[in-house]
Structure formats: C-alpha cells, structure tokens
Design a protein around this nucleic acid. Structure first.
Lengths: 349, 349
DNA sequence: CATGCTGATTTGAACGTACAAATTTGCACG
DNA sequence: CGTGCAAATTTGTACGTTCAAATCAGCATG
C-alpha cells in the first residue's frame, strides 16, 4: 500500500512547503527544518521518514524565506566593467566562469551588475542597502581604487582581484605580475636572446607598474644596465606598440626579443613585424601577457603569461566566505604565481 | 530645531526598516509602503514627510522580505556555458553585459550559474525549486535543445537567444544568420569578386545550417549553380579551414573571396593565406562571422558580421518580463538583422 | 514508582514586507 | 449640523523559514 506519488497531498506538485512536508511525515515543521540543517538533532528513523516525505513532495526550501530569517542573501556581487569599445577584456570570460563555479561550491551565487554612469558607488550602496548581496568581488583594481575605499569605510565585506597598494587594508588576491614578466624575459634569454626590449604602459597603473618592475628586475639579473635596458612605454596598445617596434628596430643594435605588457600590445608588434617582412618566431621573439583567447589564434600563435584565474577565483571566494561567516576575520592578501605558455612566437622550429 | 541626522532614531545608521521610517514620519508602515509602491494613494504632504524620514534614516526596502511577500525573486538565471578550452566564445562577454544592463533597466538582476557535469537540468530545477530565479535566458541553442524542452514542460518562463526549430514552441529572439552570410556574399560580389567560396561547419547545427543557407541563397541570386557553388564544410574550425583554403586554391579556377561561418574559421584561412604568401585584402577577400573582439586585431583586420547583441538582450528581457508579469502571454519569436562590419580583409587599399 | 536527566520534538515568535479589509478623516451636501 | 461617501490611513495577516524556549518521551537511578 505504497502511497501514490502526487495525488493525495493537496499541493499541485510544485511549491511544497515545510509545513506540507511536516504534515505528510507526521512531524512538526521544525523537525523537518532540523533534518535539513541540523541532522544530528533528529532520530534516524524520524529523519528517514521526513526525507521520504521530502522526496515525495519534491520539496525544496524557499531560498528567500530562509535568507530573510538568517539575514544573509548568500549572493556575491560582481561588477562587470563596461568594456570599452574595441578594447578586449582578456580575462572577463574566464574569470567570471571560475568565480561562479567557486562560489557555487561554497553555496553562494554570483549576481552581476553594471557600474553607474556617474562613476559613483551607488550601485554598490543599492545592492548592500537592499540586502541583495552579502559581499562583493572587485576586479580591475588600481591605486586608491574608490570602490575599495568606499566599501571599506562602509564595512561591507569584499575581496579584490588585484591590490591597489602594496599593503592594502583589505583582503585581496593577486597574480604576481612582476614574476610573469620576469619569466618571459628569462624564457627568451634562455633561447639565446641578448638584446631584449620591453613594451609597456605609461607608469601610473598598479598592474602595469608591477609588470614593468618584473622586466627591470630580470634585466638586472641578466646584467643589463643603462642604455642596454630597452624600456619603452606607449599610450595606445596596438598602434603604439607597432610604432614602438619601428623605433626599436631602427636602433644601432636592435632587439631580437620583445616582451609585451599585454597581448594587445603584442598584436601591434606582430602587425608591425609582418609589415616589415619579419617572421616572428624566427627573426624576432615576441611575448604577450594574459594568454587571452586570441593568443593561440594569432599568426604566429603567441607566447604569453597565463594567470591562474581558477585558483584566483577559488581563493577569493574562500576568503570572502570566511569573512562573511566571521566578520572579525583579519584581512589577508595572497599572491599567486602566473605561468608562461610558450608558443610559436618565441620558438624558431 | 531640525532633527539631528543619526543619533536619535535608535537604529545604527544601517538597516532601518519600514517600521522605523513609519515611527519617524508618524504614520503607519503601510503608508510608507504606499509611498514607495502606490504613490497615488497617499496625500502629497504625507508623502513628503515620509520621504524625508526615508532620507534621514537612509532606508531601503529589504529585497528579500519584499520578494518573499510578492512571491517573485526578480532574478533572471543565465547559464554560462563551460567554454571549452581553446575555443573562444565570441559573444559571451558582450552579450552578458548587454543582458545585465537590459535586466537592470527592468528592475531585474542577472544571476549566473554553471551547468551540471551530468548534462542534466538539475541546476535549473534547483534554481526554480528554491525560487531563486523567476525565469531563465538561454543561449547556445540547438535543435531540440534539452533545456528548452525541460523548462517548457515544467512551465518555467524562459526566452532563448536562438531558436531550436523554425517554429519554436517558446519565446525566442534570434539574429538572422542567413541574412548575415548573404550580406557578406553580396559585399564581396559588389567588390567585383565572381568566384566566392563558403567555409562552414558540417550540417546539423541550427546556427550553422542557417548561415550556410544564407550563402546558398545569395549564390543563387548571383546566378551560380552546380560546381560554381563552392560550399566547403570542415570539422575543425581553424585547422580545417586552413586545409580547406589549400584545397580551394588548388582548383582550376580558385576562388578570390572566402566567406567564413565564424571568425575562428577565418583565422584558419588567414593563416593559410599568409603561409602561401598571399596578402589578404589584396589577393584574397575574407569575411568572418560574429565580429568577435579579435576580429579587428587580426592581420589584416577582419570583415565580419556583427550581431546586434544589445538589441537581442533588450528584446529578450522585454519578452521575459512581460511573460513574468502575465503568465498567460503567448510565446513570441523575434528575428533581428545583423550588420556587416567591413575591414581591411575585404578592402584592397 | 516518583525523581531527575538527557535527547527528541514541538510551540511561539520573528525576519521585513505587501495585500486585504477595517477604520478614520475630510468634505460636500441636503 | 448631521449624513453620506470617497479618500486617506491603519490594523490584521501572511509569505516560508529559523531561532529560542518549552514540552514531551525514554530511561536509569535511588
């Protein structure tokens, strides 16, 4: 005399509630709640009966009701920056995916939002004020990032991908950009290149400065000094880098390897090299940074520094969730090592 | 004797509730609620007093509480497909951004989630069962998409970007892929090309078949028949297209223009052309599809068919929100026209 | 067999809001 | 100046859950 699956309960298959389950299992709603949230407190046979009722009714806890009571939305906000036209955001896709996956593993969801036109943090205030999210993940951090400052003074939990200052007063996870560039320099040095140039961005951006620092450090290790340190900074990534290459090749002793601060810069170099009839990989070594999806698609495929975005996302979520669980947690910083992915742009074969 | 800003209320600046506002404004909570949700019902001077109290306390409605009462989460779920390694999802970035923006304009938020490993729709069931989202937006739709089928039979509101069948039984918004390819063909025809080849994917995918159909249609319009219709299908996008170009160039009368089904396919063609010493734009015209971020970065910059993703997102959200507001709404389909973006890959100069 | 105690289960209350119904206010009108 | 009616406002209740406190069952002990 097994009970038929759906006809008897009274509920229309969908939308069973804690009380419905309790009625079917002949217990109180709190017992059902305990089966789900504190299994230790309920006797095994009762738990079994309740679980059966849950299956029978297809019950699922109402997320909003639970969250209202526990005063937590279990949502993490992430602002997707308005990608400027024509400029590719090399990491958004991969990082967001990794972030969502990491969050789900910890029982959180990721909510996306767009920045305000006015450049203020009203979107953050709104989400926090309405209790729509418990905390934030920020990326594209620069020196004295206004969002980080604003959130910190409001006491809103957040973790940044990247750090605004060497000693950031909040939790962050970052990839060691200096190590990445240094690895690229060492890579081409090992291939026999002695004259190595760096094409970077103007000083003043946190990420850019650190990547440049890695070049200078590696150049120092190779014993380069003075004019032998070919450090070029350009404003426009693609066009600027193309021009820069022209300039570098016109030197008395032109470089044979170009280490670029981003894949976009490398694109400019590749283009200018092709225009000159140079075969990159044979006549000239080129490296990029970010290992964006286009890196393997370029001609030739581009050696690039790959950021461990999955690990970054994982550590960010871990840090944020512990901070959410215990607001007294001290802020912590974590630096992860990138990995050089070598491709034809630095290989002769 | 203006009231001081924060000291008197009793609440700690943060977390004022409807009742707190009511007390300060000397009205009932319902009146405060009405000021926000039904302004017509309350006398102007009372409304003003309430608004002042709201400002003073920095009150914001608690989203969870409101949603629990109204039985709507005002969230839209969007599954970010696990981007296969090395394969770039050309539209994810732009589309997601557009989707989030469109949703916000209608008072919704976008919640991201990852697919289940098992390929089932349990993630969808979970989100719907817990009332975490009100509906879904699906993309990467193919014939007989299992997610669309499952959601439809569960009665869950959703709109797809793309349509599985010509007459889909649910709401969808799609870009006219056939028109896009046809436009590319006409473009190169106008430039004087008479021998035009198409490199596509094997028959069997909804998007691919429609794009191929556009080529066949345009070829017909140009009076091409029989062996003059150069229709090549390849399995692997980049490597396959490179091979395909080799083959095409070995014909008695090789094509002078190649219309590709995707930007990735075009990459293969560009690569093979470069290897042959051909200058694309002068010796050979090449077009892609999707106008992915890399299109302008290729050498030469690639003419490509751009999908109006912002408009797609806008229409999808509009359709979904009306369906959510009135579940009796009939499903509707909407086809948008893409736009050809011409670049150096089809221009001699 | 009453007592005490631990473990299991239930009842009461609350989270912050919105709908529905009830009450009060304001005002024109006979 | 009471009556009636619409507009304005308030009170009661519920959404589905969890926490806190209260009750109940089981069982060994003296």
């Amino acid at each position: 005399m097994a009970s038929t699956s759906a006809d008897s309960g009274g509920n229309t298959a969908d939308g069973a509630t804690l009380n419905d389950v309790a009625r079917v299992a002949r217990v109180s709603r709190q017992t059902v709640s305990n089966v789900l949230n504190a299994p230790g407190r309920v006797r095994p046979d009762t738990a079994e009966r309740v679980r059966q009722a849950i299956d029978e009714l297809g019950y699922r806890p109402h997320r909003l009701a639970r969250n209202l009571k526990t005063r937590a939305s279990r949502m993490i906000g992430y602002e997707i920056t308005r990608s400027r036209l024509g400029v590719l955001n090399p990491v958004l896709d991969r990082f967001v995916h990794a972030l969502v996956e990491a969050a789900e593993n910890d029982g959180y969801h990721v909510l996306l939002f767009t920045p305000d036109e006015d450049g203020l943090v009203t979107a953050y205030d709104e989400l926090v004020g309405t209790r729509t999210v418990d905390g934030f993940v920020l990326s594209d951090i620069d020196y004295g990032d206004p969002r980080a400052v604003a959130l910190a003074e409001r006491g809103v939990p957040f973790v940044t991908f990247g750090r605004p200052e060497i000693a950031a007063p909040h939790s962050w996870v970052d990839v060691d950009g200096a190590a990445g560039t240094a690895a690229a320099v060492r890579h081409v040095a090992e291939l026999g290149h002695e004259r190595i140039a760096f094409i970077g961005a103007p000083a003043g951006s946190a990420t850019g400065d650190r990547r440049a620092e890695g070049f200078l450090r590696a150049a120092g290790e190779l014993g380069l000094t003075g004019d032998d340190v070919l450090d070029v900074r350009v404003d426009d990534d693609i066009a600027g880098s193309a021009e820069a290459l022209e300039h570098l090749l016109s030197l008395d002793v032109p470089p044979t390897a170009i280490v670029c601060i981003s894949d976009a810069h490398a694109v400019g170099v590749l283009r200018a090299a092709a225009a000159r009839g140079l075969v990159v990989g044979r006549d000239l070594a080129v490296t990029g940074f970010d290992d964006s999806p286009l890196a393997p698609l370029l001609t030739p495929p581009l050696t690039s520094v790959r950021q461990p975005l999955e690990a970054v996302a994982h550590r960010i979520v871990a840090n944020l969730t512990t901070a959410l669980a215990d607001p007294a947690t001290e802020p912590a910083g974590e630096l992860l090592a990138p990995e050089l992915v070598t491709r034809a742009s630095t290989r002769p074969d």
